[in-house]
Write a protein that binds this DNA or RNA. Structure first.
Length: 970
DNA sequence: GTCTTAACTTAGGAATACAATC
DNA sequence: GATTGTATTCCTAAGTTAAGAC
């Protein structure tokens, strides 16, 4: 025990000294400092100034990006100050931090946000992995905090006059400070956040129609673009660069040829670009004629930019709002945004809403699965021969099982859809499975406080085990995590325990940690029989609770288990990480089922919170999670009709977008010249969403990690370079996106866009919203007018699917072998993943496995050398004559060939593995790519569907397998 | 009209299962 | 058979968007 106090645990491979509590003290805590962001609360961004911005830092520079994934993820650090204020807060002031946190109560007001004065700032701590962390650190500094506003300020602003405020117009909100500010702009250095960096993303740049030039894109390299770029954008090549290129580049090149005109965008996925703006497209036609012309022409600076009427360059400098005042143009274009309005940034961001959703309808039927299905059992793709799918080895029992499953398939896609909002007519299920009750650890597994064992009450002990189980995780090196945990840990204590346990640093969870590690080992080492027993138990549970009957069909439930208690693991610098997620009881759970169905019985003597019969929603059970106060649901599996139908509708909406995309593009290009700042901002934002596949970017509360999307970009997330690496009008995006994954991209944009961005950024500092007159509601309302059902995220789906299709067209050689075709498919998929910035952290052990591979390669090379020498000798000997020697020489020659082939294969593997180390292909396949494109491609090219979709995917996309024939086009 | 909340989709990482190699 | 590497599944956080509440 005592020893316990200082134990070395392995943390990510390195060993660190653990303090008594078992917490490693390796110094990684950077976070706080840097990271703190103070967000104020308010949603609005208004940010008042007060917020401090935290940091300042430096920023920019970077190191290389290359590195890895982690790198990218920003998890941390950066924050900026944006203060979102809501006036509302005014009232409140609590700190969020206070632990408990606020959840969002409905009242809302309260809750949130308030708080915090910024002062506190929270630190969001660091990021997930250490690596990242490290990286982050660097970055962090730079980044800064975002403060969301402080209260005071906000109040004022918002309310009335916003404008008033100021002067700064923009500033509304978020303002922020500067921390970066400078840097950002200035520094342009590319990337590097912390050095790592990673994935670049894709962008594609469109091309302009008609071959106009879009400035950006340059194809220059596609090459560059892609591969590397994309990925590492930065060029560092190391990571992938070169390798990447191998494959990718070539293809890209090809593409280029084909599509010549289009340039692609740089980075992105290459193709992606392609997908957009086709050269053949007529220039935009659209409403105003002029616009189109613009393209190139436009681009000449002045000319276009200055519109006769309004903006001359001079003017340009002036924020639109101001300009207006001056001029007071009579007709303000519509609405004109009178000054008032226009000038005012949207402080308030609220949300508009709705759009008609498409409803779903239903169809169903049952039946079996498709042929393609039958064989299955693919598993690795190592394909060597052509289409061989291995149908083979399916045991009779398995076959039977498959058959049964097939019989249960509900062919809803052959039925008629229902257009009202009703989701089901009958629904019956068994209710959720509760987390197993807490089982105390053996008495010899103790918690130590200040070096001495301390017996804990059951509740406290359970809380301690939550932490103990994560002791070797990076989270435990984060101050925010530890602070939040300790706060909640104390809440679980008895008063007596509270008296004793006052200093987290004196807590030692090591023995508990060791116990759980041992348990885990035991589980792994269990005999086959033991494992089988467990498996069977699980299956039985799944059989009973894992399915429901809906409209007469048995459907699989997605998550039938309630989330077990534990510590909240937010991503990035989540201010709530480490808080205790409490156990859910029946009294917390609402059940939704058919009126005439049997209501699932709550566990022993308890009662559900509520039983309702709402057939306009799809969930079976719900509860409110205590850390963030959000509602969690139990819903159906993706293979269900309810999910599948919605998925189908999603892709149909994207296909509808394809029909009007040219017009929409023409329109937003035209709007880059609008007199109204809000229109220009909207048009530029939409351009980014379309071209770069950015997410909409909702406003976030301060009690969430500071991540952004298009509409919520702040000044520090964008750098403008008149020239960069030989390209003109380059916009460098560098921000933490969803899940705190870093988005880094250097994009060459059209001059008009560039100028608009300069305008938007005028007089703003880091922390201020780039698009201060835009938010997602406003944008989506606008989109709805352009097309029924159109929202910002449809562009992502559209461009992803479009890219897949165009890439498949380009990369598939009909006469190639199946493995070659698969390679083409994967490359197309990769282009989409890059476009969408789907990253993953470098797999554990990646480095080691690369080392092993390298060693193997080296060994192979040595073997080849030896073999070559021997071959030489044999050949010499053979010359002299003996038959035997000739035979030997032949044999050696063959062996040499074989070795060389093996070497090639290994080298390819190395390239491939490294290329993919930070790219996640699955996310796009599952969520963005119309499965019918893949199905059609398979059918057309004689590739078994199993090579493309694994079993889960096939189940999810069964509708597509049945629906699409080889001629399907997105 | 503004803000909150519900509902549902999208996302990466951990855990697990499985296959390839040693 | 053990080990290692890879693919799949599970889990749940983090987004988007529509609807509801004042």
């Amino acid at each position: 025990m005592t020893d316990a106090q200082n134990i070395h645990i392995q943390n990510g491979g390195r060993s660190e000294v653990v303090q008594s509590n078992g917490v490693t003290s390796n110094g990684h805590h950077h976070h706080h400092s840097s990271g703190s962001k103070h967000k104020s609360h308010s949603k609005d961004k208004h940010r008042d100034k007060d917020r401090e911005h935290k940091s300042s830092g430096s920023s920019s520079s970077s190191k290389d990006h290359k590195s890895s994934r982690d790198k990218d993820r920003h998890k941390s650090s950066s924050s900026s100050s944006k203060h979102r204020d809501k006036e509302r807060d005014s009232s409140s002031s609590s700190h969020r931090s206070s632990s408990s946190s606020s959840h969002k109560d409905k009242d809302g007001s309260s809750k949130h946000k308030s708080s915090s004065s910024s002062s506190s700032g929270h630190h969001k701590s660091s990021s997930k992995d250490k690596e990242r962390r490290d990286k982050d650190k660097d970055r962090s500094s730079s980044s800064s905090s975002r403060h969301k506003s402080s209260s005071s300020s906000r109040d004022k602003e918002r309310s009335s006059s916003h404008k008033s405020s100021s002067s700064s117009s923009s500033s509304k909100s978020k303002h922020s400070s500067s921390r970066h500010g400078g840097s950002s702009s200035t520094s342009k250095e590319p990337p590097s956040y912390d050095g790592v960096f990673v994935k670049p993303e894709p962008v594609s740049q469109p091309l302009i129609p008609g071959g106009l030039i879009e400035p950006f894109h340059v194809p220059e390299e596609f090459n560059s673009y892609n591969p590397n770029t994309a990925i590492n954008c930065n060029g560092n090549g190391n990571d992938g660069g070169a390798n990447y290129k191998n494959g990718y580049e070539d293809s890209i090149v090809e593409i280029k040829k084909e599509e010549s005109f289009n340039n692609l965008s740089q980075a992105s996925s290459c193709d992606y670009s392609l997908s957009q703006f086709r050269s053949d497209e007529p220039p935009f036609e659209v409403k105003h004629e002029q616009s189109y012309a613009e393209d190139d022409s436009t681009m000449n600076d002045n000319e276009q930019y200055e519109e006769p009427e309004e903006m001359d360059e001079d003017e340009e400098d002036v924020p639109l709002a101001m300009r207006k005042r001056k001029q007071e143009a009579p007709d303000q274009a519509h609405g004109g945004m009178d000054d008032d309005d226009d000038d005012i940034p949207l402080l308030a961001r609220k949300k508009p809403k709705k759009e008609s959703k498409e409803k779903k309808s239903k169809k169903r039927v049952k039946e079996e699965a498709d042929d393609m299905y039958a064989n299955v059992k693919p598993k690795k793709i190592k394909i060597k021969k052509e289409a061989e799918v291995k149908t083979e080895a399916v045991s009779p029992a398995k076959r039977q099982k498959i058959k049964e499953e097939e019989e249960e398939v509900w062919r809803w896609w052959e039925e008629e859809k229902r257009a009202d909002g009703v989701k089901w007519s009958t629904l019956e299920h068994k209710g959720p499975v509760f987390a197993p009750p807490y089982e105390r650890v053996p008495r010899n597994v103790r918690f130590y406080y200040d070096g001495k064992p301390l017996e804990l009450s059951e509740e406290t002990e359970e809380a301690a085990t939550f932490y103990a189980k994560m002791l070797n995780h990076d989270y435990c090196t984060k101050e925010v995590f530890n602070n939040n945990f300790f706060k909640d840990f104390r809440k679980s204590m008895t008063s007596k325990e509270k008296e004793i346990i006052k200093d987290f640093r004196k807590c030692n969870f090591q023995e508990m940690f060791n116990f759980f590690q041992a348990e885990s080992e035991k589980r792994k080492a269990a005999t086959k029989e033991e494992k089988l027993v467990k498996k069977n138990e699980n299956e039985a549970l799944m059989k009973e609770y894992g399915f429901c009957m809906i409209d007469g069909h048995k459907e699989k439930i997605g998550n039938f288990r309630l989330e077990p208690p534990g510590l909240f693991r937010g991503r990035g610098e989540h201010p709530k990480m480490g808080m205790i997620k409490r156990r859910i009881h029946a009294s917390d759970v609402s059940i939704n089922c058919g009126k005439d169905s049997k209501v699932p019985p709550p566990p022993g003597g308890s009662r559900w919170k509520e039983v309702r019969h709402d057939n306009t929603v799809t969930w079976l059970a719900s509860w409110i999670e205590n850390v963030q106060g959000q509602v969690k649901y139990i819903m159906l599996n993706p293979s269900s009709k309810l999910k599948g139908e919605k998925d189908h509708i999603k892709y149909e909406t994207a296909r509808r977008l394809d029909k009007v995309i040219d017009k929409i593009r023409a329109t937003y290009r035209d709007e880059w010249k609008s007199k109204e700042m809000r229109v220009r901002q909207r048009a530029v934002a939409l351009y980014f969403i379309d071209k770069l596949a950015l997410r909409a970017g909702n406003e976030k509360d301060e009690d969430q990690a500071d991540t952004v999307g298009c509409c919520s970009l702040r000044v520090e997330h964008v750098q403008l370079h008149k020239e960069l690496n030989g390209k003109e009008n380059v916009v460098v995006f560098d921000f933490p996106g969803k899940d705190s994954i870093r988005y880094y991209n250097e994009v060459e944009v059209e001059k008009r866009v560039f100028k608009n961005l300069e305008l938007f950024m005028e007089h703003k500092k880091d922390g201020d919203d780039l698009f201060d007159r835009l938010n997602t509601q406003v944008l989506n309302e606008h989109l709805k007018e352009l097309m029924d059902g159109l929202t910002a995220k449809v562009f992502r789906t559209y461009n992803a699917s479009k890219t897949l299709q165009s890439q498949l067209d380009l990369l598939t050689d009909p006469s190639a072998t199946v493995p070659e075709k698969l390679l083409a498919y994967n490359r197309a998929n990769r282009a989409v993943a890059i476009l969408c910035n789907h990253q993953r952290s470098v797999p554990k052990g990646h480095e080691k496995s690369m080392e092993n591979l390298k060693e193997k390669i080296k060994a192979k090379r040595d073997a080849i050398d030896d073999c070559e020498a021997e071959y030489h000798d044999f050949k010499k000997a053979a010359k002299r004559g003996s038959v035997k020697e000739k035979v030997n020489a032949d044999k050696k020659g063959k062996q040499l060939e074989r070795l060389k082939d093996q070497l090639k294969k290994l080298e390819l593997q190395e390239t491939d593995r490294d290329e993919n180390k930070t790219i996640a292909l699955g996310t796009s396949k599952l969520n963005y790519l119309d499965p019918r494109i893949s199905v059609a491609w398979c059918k057309k090219n004689g590739v078994p569907i199993e090579k493309i979709f694994n079993k889960t995917q096939r189940t999810k996309f069964l509708w597509a397998v049945h629906m699409a024939d080889e001629d399907y086009r997105f």
